[in-house]
């Protein structure tokens, strides 16, 4: 068997294993979807009806929230899946992988496929749900096909970025508890400063500045353009978003693969 076929076969097997584990864990499966949908319903309807926001289209906060909730879902899901790296290290499976005829980078790549796939599918499940609910009024301003494609690319890029980030952190943080602590410390502020919960356009300068150095901002911006916005004014724009998100994803993911995994 050629080297490439061997590697691809190994990636497929590692991916299949992570997917099987995910599908087996009913609690992970349901909670990872229920929480975002609950947030969308409760916070979305609550703010729409309770505060009557005037700066979102038609005062409809639920629809505005959809792109942000998709990003949040990817965030939680991929962090959760990345924890499987720690499980594999603690169970010793990582050692077994690393004595197979593959480079550590190839093994780490195979391991991240699971996190990326699960994160992307869950984020898209939220989108599917949102498009199916009549009360949610997505604009699809580029047409459903192109907009969907853009959303797919965004979700994928975001998950690659997050998986790289998790890998970089995991190579430096010894315990899973520490990893979760740091992820929460990093992820919640990133989420809040990303425009997921409020439009960026009218923010004070300091907050806007913070949003611009936040990678998630560009993912939220892309998804809002693809799904929610009618027109492009007030947004960062597809070109900037794709460039920033794409290059950050490539750099972080590549960096993550080069970290030698801590085996013990």
């Amino acid at each position: 068997m050629s080297g490439a076929a061997l590697t691809v076969g190994a990636w497929g097997a590692l991916l299949a294993r992570d997917l099987r584990a995910f599908l087996r864990s009913r609690s992970q499966l349901s909670s990872s979807l229920l929480f975002p949908l609950m947030l969308l319903a409760v916070v979305g309807v609550g703010i729409s009806e309770g505060l009557e926001p005037s700066r979102v289209r038609d005062g409809d906060y639920v629809t505005f929230l959809v792109p942000g909730i998709i990003v949040m879902t990817a965030l939680f899901s991929s962090t959760f899946s990345s924890a499987s790296f720690y499980q594999d290290r603690d169970s010793g499976m990582l050692k077994v992988f690393l004595v197979s005829p593959h480079s550590p980078a190839a093994i780490l790549f195979g391991k991240s496929l699971g996190a990326i796939t699960i994160g992307s599918v869950q984020a898209l499940a939220v989108l599917a749900f949102a498009s199916a609910v009549p009360a949610i009024d997505l604009a699809w301003q580029y047409g459903v096909g192109p907009s969907l494609l853009l959303a797919l690319a965004t979700v994928l890029g975001l998950n690659v970025l997050l998986s790289g980030l998790a890998q970089v952190l995991a190579s430096r943080i010894r315990t899973m508890q520490g990893f979760h602590l740091v992820m929460n410390l990093v992820l919640f502020p990133l989420l809040f400063f990303s425009g997921a919960f409020f439009p960026l356009a009218d923010l004070p300068g300091w907050l806007y500045g913070l949003a611009l150095v936040n990678p998630l901002t560009y993912a939220v911006d892309l998804l809002q353009l693809a799904l929610y916005a009618e027109g492009e004014s007030g947004y960062l724009g597809i070109g900037v978003d794709l460039a920033v998100l794409g290059s950050l994803a490539a750099v972080l993911f590549g960096w993550g693969l080069r970290r030698h995994p801590m085996v013990d």
Binding site: G9, A10, G12, A13, G92, F97, P101
Partner: peptide, 21 residues
């Protein structure tokens, strides 16, 4: 012991076989 407690015996061996081509 270096095993994933949640995998079945068959899955454990299958994954290893795939890693070795």
């Amino acid at each position: 012991s270096c095993l994933d407690p949640l995998m079945t015996l068959h899955e454990t061996l299958w994954l290893h076989g795939r890693l070795f081509g």
